[in-house]
Amino acid sequence: MKKTLMLAAALLITPLVGNTIGYAAEGGSAIPEMMAKYEAEGASNFSAEAGKKMWTKVMPYEKKGEMIKDRSCSTCHGTDLTKPGKHAKTGKEIAPMIPSAVSTNRKGEQVPRFSEAKKIKKWFKRNCKWTYGRECTPQEKGNFLAFFKSFN
């Protein structure tokens, strides 16, 4: 009897708690964790300047039938990090790349930028490969994060 009540209560409460805790983290809160990880992998002295330079570095991309010929981070994210970007193919808006930016997911939840390590990992992998045809080095990733962090 008691167990049933507890279970019912737990079921009722779980989604509420999940929602609040899920995205309570502040924008940029996952950056230190990622930087520590890159340092453990041998990188050091992250440079916002180097990150900024690489941000607009254009890589030629040749493929028959492909609509985007030259690729850089700014192809989709733009050159002004305080403004939203736009997915080059789908046109979907991308939240600004500064730690104070917030994006809204499909469920209507507010997700602060760089608040989830998993997401940073996922997108560095996808986007470095898309842009440079290879994964970024820990040093490069740290430089990018330092660049984003400099807008704090």
């Binding site: 193919k89 998993k118 996922k122 992998k125 996808r126 986007n127 898309w130």
Partner: peptide, 12 residues
């Protein structure tokens, strides 16, 4: 997924 209609959509 690595070449998802020209986009990289890799997942863990």
């Amino acid at each position: 997924l690595e070449d998802h209609f020209g986009e990289n959509a890799e997942l863990d």
